[in-house]
Design a protein around this nucleic acid. Structure first.
Length: 267
DNA sequence: TGCGTCTGACATTCCGTACT
DNA sequence: AGTACGGAATGTCAGACGCA
C-alpha cells in the first residue's frame, strides 16, 4: 500500500496557493502539479494510485474550500449555483465524491466578471423561457461543444449544420439555416493574400472555407507531422504563408487572420 | 431605441476520461 | 481493450437579451 497520505501537504500547498481558483481547479490538474513539484513522484505512480490521490485531493479540497468560505463569503456564494448541482451533490458529506469538479468553461465565464445580478437575472430568465441557448450553455461547455469536433455528437459525423462548398450554412437536409443566421458571419467572404491564394487556388473565401481548403491542402500534401498530428510541416507555399518551417494547427488558424482582408466594397 | 454583453456557429485534430 | 465523446484553441459576426 503506497503512502499517499504523505503528499497531503503538497496538495494543500497547491490548492491554497495564491491565484488558485477553487471553482476551476480539477483533481487532474492537482495531480499534474503534484508530479511537477515533486521530483520523486512520477506520473505513472500517480496514475496507478489515481483513486487514492483523488480521494486525498478531494479531502484537502473540502478543507481548503471550507476554510476559504469562512473568510470569504463571496466565494462561498459563487459555489452556490453550479457546484451545488454536481460537486456538493455527491460530495459535501462523506462518501463518494465527484472528484472531477472541474468546470473550466463555466469558470472562464464567471471570471469575466462573476455573476452579477444582471447575469443571474438573465440566466434565470433564460431557464424560465427555456431558450435553446441557455439549455446548451447550462449543460457542459457552451462554447466548447459548439466549437468542438463533436458537432452532432460523433467524430467524423457531419453536423446538423455545416458550411457547404459555396460557403453557405446548411443543415442535414441541405436546407439553409439562414432563418437563424442570415448573411455575414461565416458566410462573409474575405480577399485572400497572395500566399494564401497559392494554396487555395481561389482569391475569395469565407474563413471556415479557407480553413477547410487549408486542411485539404495539408492532407493532400501529407504536411501533418506523423509524430504530432497537430503540427503542420510547412512546404514552400506554407512557408511563404506563415514564415516558419512548422506550425501548430491552432497557430495556423490564428495566423490565418493576417491573410484575410475585407473585400473592397462593390460599386 | 440604442448600447453593451453574452452565446452560438464553423472548420480542424488530438488527448483524456468514462463507459462497455 | 476498444469505443464514444467532451474539451481544448482560433477568429468574427448575428442574434438575443437587459438596462438606461
Amino acid at each position: 500500500m503506497a503512502d499517499i497520505e504523505r503528499y497531503e501537504p503538497r496538495i494543500r500547498e497547491i490548492l491554497s496557493a495564491p491565484g488558485v481558483d477553487l471553482s476551476t481547479i480539477s483533481a487532474k490538474r492537482v495531480r499534474k502539479q503534484l508530479v511537477e513539484m515533486d521530483d520523486s513522484l512520477t506520473a505513472e505512480f500517480v496514475r496507478e494510485h489515481k483513486e487514492e490521490f483523488d480521494q486525498l485531493i478531494s479531502n484537502v479540497y473540502e478543507e481548503v474550500s471550507a476554510g476559504q468560505a469562512n473568510g470569504d463569503d463571496a466565494k462561498g456564494k459563487r459555489r452556490s449555483r453550479d457546484e451545488e448541482d454536481d460537486y456538493a451533490n455527491g460530495g459535501g458529506e462523506e462518501g463518494e465524491e465527484e472528484v472531477e469538479y472541474e468546470r473550466p468553461v463555466k469558470a472562464k465565464k464567471a471570471k469575466k466578471g462573476g455573476l452579477t445580478d444582471e447575469e443571474v437575472a438573465r440566466q434565470l430568465d433564460s431557464e424560465i423561457n427555456g431558450r435553446q441557448r441557455s439549455s446548451r450553455a447550462s449543460s457542459t461547455s457552451a462554447r466548447g461543444r459548439g466549437r468542438g469536433g463533436k458537432r452532432g455528437g460523433r467524430r467524423g459525423a457531419k453536423s446538423s449544420a455545416t458550411v457547404n462548398s459555396d460557403g453557405e450554412t446548411v443543415d442535414d437536409d441541405g436546407e439553409g439555416v439562414k432563418k437563424k443566421r442570415r448573411g455575414g458571419g461565416f458566410q462573409k467572404e474575405y480577399m485572400l493574400s497572395e500566399p494564401l491564394m497559392a494554396v487555395t487556388d481561389v482569391d475569395k473565401l469565407s474563413r471556415p472555407q479557407t480553413v477547410k481548403k487549408l486542411w485539404d491542402y495539408i492532407r493532400s500534401n501529407n504536411l501533418q507531422n506523423p509524430d504530432n498530428r497537430k503540427e503542420i510541416i510547412c512546404d514552400d507555399k506554407f512557408r511563404a504563408l506563415f514564415n516558419v518551417d512548422k506550425i501548430d494547427m491552432f497557430a495556423m488558424n490564428k495566423q490565418l487572420g493576417r491573410h484575410l482582408r475585407e473585400p473592397e466594397p462593390e460599386a
